[in-house]
Amino acid sequence: MGIVLDNLSKIEALPGGGIALATSDELINWARTSSVWPLTFGLACCAIEMMAAYASRFDFERMGVFPRPTPRQADVMFVAGTVAKKMADPIIRIYKQMPEPKFVIAMGGCANCGGPFYDSYAVVKGVDKIIPVDVYLPGCPPRPEALMYAVIKLQEKMRKMTVKGGHGATPLQGTGSRKLT
């Protein structure tokens, strides 16, 4: 078991290789960005592209993106598809069950703003009306490469986080997500 230190600029291996020095922020963010675990959760046709991203051709797991079966083990939620109003309450409930820090990627036009269902009686006009969103990914549906790009963008955001005060995380991290409606 070893750690590849090449990509970690602020981690220094002492001569001999027995000891490495790093700031805690750098180490935690490195761990966080290398294991972005999403919730196994799909709402509509965007979920098909999400599944393709997990499968062998695109192989999301090489980026550390490995779907988890329960929100309690998940770091990120891909809202992949149309959010019907009937689904809004379950989404809030799942979001509340995820541990902090948690992130949301709104995948596709429907999750961003309602998409082609903007004038509908049944669709939430963007998932950001019910939960905070970190990355908006346009497309109808976005290709798996685009979803990877969204995860890379999310990793960029994670690298700016600091342990102190939960800086840079989801806006609700300080107060917790229990204030959601």
């Binding site: 019907a84 109003k85 009937k86 809004a88 009686y121 049944a122 939430v124 006009k125 009306k129 019910i130 409606t181």
Partner: peptide, 20 residues
């Protein structure tokens, strides 16, 4: 959803804005 007002496919349906 449970608090939907009216029946959407009726020709005289009028949408009432809800919390979403």
């Amino acid at each position: 959803q449970d608090d939907q007002q009216g029946h959407p496919l009726r020709k005289d349906y009028e949408h009432v804005a809800d919390k979403f």
